[in-house]
């Protein structure tokens, strides 16, 4: 269900999860556009030589996926804050799910807080955090 106004939002509701494209080609496109082009994001072997488990999905790309999930759920939402804690790296070419759930609703102001997680196929949280968004009052 797409959310249009604050009246559509309920505490505890889960946002539709998305599985983003974390392929090497897509990450390459992102880091070039972001001005972050570096082998640690685009070359598994070069990343391993730096002691990393593989090429990394940049943190700002993960935050972008989280924001995209929010806008997919509520196209008119104004994302005020995406506050993330990176607990473990997200590796390029591995599968992740982007998840959100509503954990606070202020019906007077339209402000909604959303718990955010990026989980791998094992269900482990690699990234967690919260978002504050404004939903139109209607």
């Amino acid at each position: 269900m797409s959310v249009n106004t604050i009246a559509d939002v309920e505490f505890g509701v889960e946002l539709p999860s998305i599985s983003p494209d974390t392929s090497l080609a897509n990450v390459k496109r992102f880091v070039v556009a972001a001005g972050w082009d570096s082998p640690r994001f685009t070359d598994h072997d070069a990343a391993r030589e730096q002691g990393l488990p593989g090429a990394l999905v940049p943190g700002i790309m993960s935050q972008g996926f989280l924001s995209a999930m929010i806008h997919h759920w509520a196209p008119a939402a104004e994302v005020k804050l995406v506050d993330t804690v990176f607990r473990a790296p997200c590796i390029v070419d591995e599968q992740y799910n982007i998840n959100g759930v509503v954990t606070d609703v202020d019906e007077d102001t339209g402000e909604v807080e959303i718990d955010l997680t990026v989980t791998n196929e094992a269900g482990e949280n690699r990234v967690f955090g919260t978002a504050k968004v404004l939903i139109p009052l209607g």
């Binding site: 505490f11 505890g12 506050d83 804690v85 954990t103 606070d104 718990d115 967690f128 955090g129 919260t130």
Partner: peptide, 17 residues
């Protein structure tokens, strides 16, 4: 410093879920 949860929302979550 890395906590993002308000205690009242923990309570609300426990009861709602």
């Amino acid at each position: 410093d890395d906590g993002r949860a308000k205690v009242q929302n923990y309570c609300q979550w426990i009861k709602t879920r």
